[in-house]
């Protein structure tokens, strides 16, 4: 199990490219030129007395149509606060109806590569993490991150959503994407990042032999001559470089027995956060399975949504 000393002693080799902000600024500017073409089609089978569920679509990078589950409280006229829920690496986007009864809307995004956009873009799982690594412009995660950012645009396009109360959450890859999206989009007012993936790539691929990080080790073994380029590309997509740009309150949840996303790398991101921050540590828990995490996540977001400027009492300090 990782210890407090392990977390604090860890030092990442990742540095931020000089043109990091220009790269992502250009991407956001390009997306802004693209029509959103947002749709929300009612799904009566998944709707109930508390929540109206819609199958949402919108356009993202390269014109790809992205799908999401959009759930809106059935009671009340809004405007509703909203949570952008970002997905794990290989898991399905969660259809979250639990927030509906609390008066909160949710957009749960199926980023590219998942059903149904996999009909067009399908690097696979494994596969996504190494897709297009040869260039920051062609790397698969550029599209994935675009899809998350456009999720914010989808919410902003909806008249029933309060644009001042948009939050984000996710676990594993969803945790990494929560950090990255919050770093790109100041419209996000707070977030909870659980067991975050996409952190400190060079160290993560060395510390573990589990997927998805092991995909990078496979790539390096297959293409040793490209290692430098691979690491250069990954600098642009590392959550540790987004962390100082995050100004909203952010929680990082870490399982100290995490066998998929090294706890030390998650802590490194937490340590660099630019705004108000909280750390949740879960001893005796592995990746994605801390029993108390979902309850704490819900409680933190509820509290923020109800009173966005108060401090949470749940902070755990080292």
């Amino acid at each position: 199990m990782a210890t407090k000393a392990d977390l604090e002693a860890f030092v990442t080799s990742v540095t931020c490219p000089d043109d990091f902000d220009q790269f992502w600024g250009a991407m956001l500017a390009g997306l802004a030129e693209l029509p959103l073409d947002a749709t929300a089609t009612p799904d009566p089978l998944r709707s109930n007395a508390e929540v109206n569920v819609y199958q949402a679509t919108y356009r993202s990078l390269d014109g790809l149509e992205i799908f999401g589950w959009y759930s809106v409280p059935a009671v009340g006229d809004g405007p509703f606060p909203a949570v952008l829920v970002l997905p794990g690496y290989k898991s399905e986007p969660a259809l979250r109806r639990d927030w509906g009864r609390k008066g909160v809307a949710v957009l749960s995004v199926a980023v590219r590569g998942k059903l149904p956009s996999s009909a067009v873009f399908n690097p696979g799982y494994p596969g996504l993490l190494t897709h297009g690594l040869e260039s920051r412009d062609n790397y698969g995660y550029k599209g994935v991150i675009s899809d998350c950012s456009r999720g914010v645009d989808f919410l902003l396009s909806r008249p029933e959503i309060d644009p001042e109360r948009i939050y984000a959450s996710g676990s594993s890859q969803g945790g990494g994407l929560t950090l990255i999206t919050a770093g790109l989009r100041p419209e996000i007012k707070g977030g909870v990042s659980g067991y975050p993936f996409l952190c400190c790539f060079p160290e993560s691929m060395r510390m573990l032999r589990s997927y998805p990080y092991d995909e990078l080790s496979c790539y390096r073994r297959a293409h040793p001559e490209r290692e430098g380029q691979m690491l250069e590309t990954l600098r642009y997509f590392d959550a540790v470089n987004f962390a100082p740009r995050i100004r909203c309150p952010m929680v990082v949840g870490i399982a100290l027995e995490d066998e998929v996303c090294p706890p030390e790398t998650s802590y490194a991101v937490y340590d660099r956060l630019g705004g108000e921050r909280e750390l949740w540590l879960f001893p005796d828990s592995g990746h994605g399975n801390a029993h108390d995490y979902p309850k704490q996540e819900t409680a933190w977001l509820e509290q923020r949504i109800a009173a966005p400027h108060t401090l949470s009492p749940q902070a755990v300090s080292l």
Partner: peptide
């Protein structure tokens, strides 16, 4: 275990 759908989580793994 005192868990939900994750069952025993890391301890059971």
């Amino acid at each position: 275990y005192d868990g939900a759908a994750e069952g025993g989580g890391h301890i059971h793994a």
